[in-house]
Amino acid sequence: MNNSEREHTGARFASLAWDLAQNPGAEPTAQRIVELAVKTILCNGAAITTLRRDKTLEIIAGSDLQVLSTAVDIANRTGQSSTRAALEAKTTIVNNDVENDPRWDSYRRLMVADTPIRSTASFPLVLVGVELGVMSFYSEQPGFFTPDVLDDCAIYADHAAVALKAARAEDRGDQLAEAVSSNREIGIAVGIVMTRYSVTKDAAFDMLVVSSSHSNRKLRDIAAETVGSGDVPSWRSKRA
């Protein structure tokens, strides 16, 4: 990266936090993160990825979904990739020569045959112990991720984690407010759970949501039972 390019990168970082804060909600924020990553790092593409419960990779947001979907499909078929390694090891993983890297042979052959990606860098997005996924950057140029570029990627990933966590918290607050305003029993149930378990309003709402998900029942039904019994159904059965 030459001096003029690095000056451009510095200017982008100066306004990055403000820019990301303008996007309400987790999904728009994640998409803006990957779009700005390409402009800030001057790479060919970027993605935010997480692991599903079945341990397959899922793209939360991507700058070029055609290329990235192919890459994720290869990673899921082979069980190999720098993104998967970063998610599992919870550390930065760099693959600066996809075509010749000896770590993942099946992945390497398919990536070279089916995608233009020739170097990658993946950074876990973790903030205050909360795992938000992995921020991955890719280039069509081998050896793109020099120490200076990796420093910029690390700074960018830190900004991304802050923005994404804030957006998710905003979504959660909106979801709680909407649920409470639309169903009186949900609000009462939240209050009961807060008192019984000495937790915050957000944590109490999360307990109701988890109970709803695990029992495959509607949230309002879980709330009604909680109001009637004085406890969250799934938690009550565990305590019995």
Rank of each mutant, 00 (worst) to 15 (best):
I41Q: 11
K90Y: 02
V193Q: 05
V162F: 01
N44L: 08
K90N: 02
H214F: 08
T200V: 06
G187C: 08
P142E: 03
E185W: 07
S4C: 10
D114V: 04
I41G: 04
I188P: 08
M207S: 12
P142M: 02
N2G: 12
P142Y: 06
D171T: 12
G143W: 11
M135G: 00
H159L: 12
A47S: 15
V126D: 02
S182L: 01
A46M: 12
V149H: 01
S139M: 01
G133K: 03
A26P: 03
L16N: 15
G45H: 01
V94Y: 11
D19R: 09
D221L: 03
A157R: 06
F123K: 06
D73K: 13
R217T: 14
L150Y: 05
S198F: 10
L20A: 07
P142S: 03
S237K: 15
F144A: 02
M1K: 13
T120F: 00
R77L: 09
T29P: 00
A224M: 09
R84T: 01
E99K: 15
R52A: 07
L68R: 11
L42D: 09
E140N: 13
L68G: 08
I155H: 09
V72W: 06
A21W: 00
P142Q: 04
R32C: 09
G45K: 01
A46G: 15
L208K: 04
A163R: 01
A157E: 00
F145C: 08
V162W: 05
Q80G: 01
V67M: 00
A26V: 09
V126N: 03
I60Y: 03
N3K: 13
D174C: 05
P116M: 15
K55A: 13
A37T: 08
